[in-house]
Design a protein around this nucleic acid. Structure first.
Length: 123
RNA sequence: AAUGCAAGCCGUCUUAUCGCUCCGACUUGUCGGGGAGGAAAGUCCGGGCAACAUUGAGCAUCGUACUUCCUAACAGGAAGGCCCCGACUUGUCGGGGACAGAAAGUGCCACAGAAAACAAACUACUCCGUUCGACUUGUCGAAUGGGGAAAAGGUGAAAAGGUGAGGUAAGAGCUCACCGCCUUUGUGGCGACACGAAGGGCACGGCAAACCUUACGAGUUGAAAGACCAAAUAGGUCCCGAACAUGAGCCGCUCUGCUCAUCCAUUUAUGGAAGUCGGGACGGGUAGGUUGAUUGACCCCGAUUGCGAAGUCGGGGCUAGAUAAAUGAUAAGAUGCUGACUGAAACGUCAGUAACAGAACCCGGCUUACAGGCUUGCAUUUUUU
């Protein structure tokens, strides 16, 4: 499995876990994202991630897809920065009103991953 | 050649690196292959499919509304009819039309106007009478009273058949001709209708996108429908096994043991019920998974029938299948477009940008969005021969 792979198992898709993340998870804002995270209660071999952009800010499906694809790509290429343990549930919620280009999103994701590492160290 | 209109079609491409999803191989982590649209959109119609409901009929409700045809079906399409508008070469072309019924009933018709549906007399017109004035002494003018008259003016979306002639005091379908309308009828056409004939002086204003009437159609809910498999935990039913339970009393106390009592049946010391523990089976069912779900009213080519929409026959093809939801990111180049610069122009250089938009059970339509390009037809202008 390649260093930069990003297959189905790494995506957060169980409804139960998503509910848990949104109700119990901690969060911080880091433009253009709001990031939610929670230690994974199940035994998973990977961090599990979800990306989302709201219908309220982006009415067209094409725009939402574009944002999610760029965000996912940024995570895929930089996820090695993230510490191995503990395994986390992470939600990237796009809160900006306009579509940013890939470079800006990649920078933001990088910062976010570093911050997640710091937060975990404190615990 | 350019511009405009209409119809149809296309609607960025290539390479490299790193990735995603499905399928197939095998050496089980590698290789090979497939991977958004013309609208995937709006969810406005129609169907397939599924579950539930369902004796039949009527009423109500909703929808449709020139005709015939196509179709699984439609509010879609094709061909045609009629009406309206525009153009000119005046009988052709182009465009538009919710285009059934207003002689079944109810309702409405603002403003303006005298009067708006049982018509109506404001001005002007005209006849008769009375009074006054003038003079050429029977005429004219003015005022007033009583009639006639829907022809003229003006208002209005609309003024109660139109035009012309006769007629009359003035007028009027009052009469006549032509046109229109109504009734009856002939011929042609599947039909909507068309072209005629005879009779009738004409009765019947508009609005049905007001209620309504007529004809035809419609069961409800949608893929989060439905079908199947089903972990763990808790609970249910059944079966098997084990221990016999609870209370009191006795041995100093504990364990063990013994005695008595406690639900039902009786053969009176056994069986059953209930309860406890362990194991098993069954069924319901949650998370989750499979299916529905990608071979279809499918696509391409050819033949044939039909004016056409389409139908039939033959051959070939398999063309996304995700599910918190794949089809991407980065770089380079090409292509198109836009802008700037240079220039007579082309070429060129630089910069920017890549239309509208993302499948979600599947089809047939409709509607809306769309940078740019291509093809065909028509019209106009210019150039050349």
């Amino acid at each position: 499995m390649g260093k930069f792979s990003f297959h189905t198992g790494e995506r957060l898709k169980k409804e139960k876990l998503i509910k848990e993340l949104f109700s119990k998870g901690s969060s911080f804002n880091l433009y253009p994202f709001r990031i939610m995270y929670l230690p994974n209660p199940d035994d998973a071999p990977f961090h599990q991630v979800l990306f989302t952009a709201s219908t309220r800010n982006f009415k067209k499906a094409v725009d939402r897809n574009k944002i999610k694809r760029r965000s996912r790509e940024a995570y895929r290429l930089q996820k090695a920065q993230l510490n191995e343990t503990p395994k986390l549930l992470i939600g990237f919620i796009y809160i900006a009103k306009e579509i940013l280009d890939y470079n800006q999103i990649a920078e933001a994701v990088s910062k976010a991953l570093n911050r997640l590492n710091e937060v975990k160290m404190k615990k």
